[in-house]
Nucleic acid binder design. Structure first.
Lengths: 159, 159
DNA sequence: GCCTAAAGCTTCAAGCTTGAAATAAAGAGG
DNA sequence: CCTCTTTATTTCAAGCTTGAAGCTTTAGGC
């Protein structure tokens, strides 16, 4: 909880703050646009998309708790999202043979079809939103972003 | 609404998608940490912080509609946030002399004091979260992020 | 078998977010 | 003055998000 830095690092602190504001602005801009398109053009949402994307990587189904672990959201959160996906016939809960507490969330054929359509558009949207960058610049950016992330616990295989 | 790209640009499309996933991961990681600290250490939230930051730049007060314009959130949204800031004595609504429809949101002395404490911590948090990057890397990143943003309507003076 | 602890999931209150609908005041044109 | 449109704001329903509290089931110790 130390609030003061040496004078020599004050400029660097301001630079990092400025970097964070740029990062946030670009990221929320893209995210907002994706949310808007999902809503207006596909009557869906980003949380639904994220859950479906996770389920697509596990055709056999995922336990609710694993799902919330992968997406780094709360347990109660995925309950609601899977509830709504289920209402729309895009996912189902199936019982786990040996454990009556748990259930697996799994995509339905309709859900798979819906997601594949969404995913194709999603890639296109991202591509369009980032087309101001050359391929080389993209790679530079990726490297720097990954370096910035090294600080944190980075032990996930789901990105 | 064209979904197919030439084969030659397919790799670049995947690179941009990968870039977006990295961007999102870093950004939500930092944002999540800031939200958590605001909540756990200061009993506050990021939307409150954002509203206060905007009001701090306008000591005379801001119309609700201007506030929502600056923050790029809906009108109804700021109504609720300013309501809660007001309940906590951090902001007030003051009447606009010539227009009985409008009102200005303005920081209270208590709000100013609260925000200054928050802002100092905020800069420290960001600095700590991004300390894996050299000053030079930060500048490179800032430049690339700004270039990526050039696409979009960039006519704001409030960042 | 019984008791306790842990695991898996849901429910809940509070807050954030949106777009649409409602309310109210200002302004323009007659 | 009256009406119509525009502007400023609030209210609302629906959804997302969290942490905490609760429920059921499982597993371990006795």
């Amino acid at each position: 909880m130390t609030l003061q830095h040496a004078d020599t690092s004050n400029d660097e602190s301001k630079t990092r703050l400025r970097l964070w504001l740029r990062l946030l602005k670009l990221s929320s801009g893209i995210e907002g646009e994706i949310r808007r398109k999902l809503r207006d053009e596909h009557d869906s949402t980003l949380p639904r998309f994220d859950v479906m994307a996770a389920l697509m990587r596990h055709p056999e189904g995922l336990k609710m708790s694993d799902l919330s672990g992968y997406l780094k959201v709360s347990n109660g959160n995925v309950t609601g999202i899977v509830d709504r996906l289920t209402e729309d016939g895009l996912a189902v809960r199936v019982a786990v043979p040996g454990d009556r507490r748990a259930s697996l969330a799994r995509m339905t054929p309709k859900g798979i079809q819906t997601f594949e359509d969404l995913a194709a558009h999603h890639e296109d949207w991202v591509n369009g939103l980032l087309d101001g960058l050359s391929n080389h610049e993209c790679h530079t950016l990726i490297d720097l972003l990954e370096k910035a992330m090294l600080n944190k616990d980075n032990s996930d295989e789901h990105g």
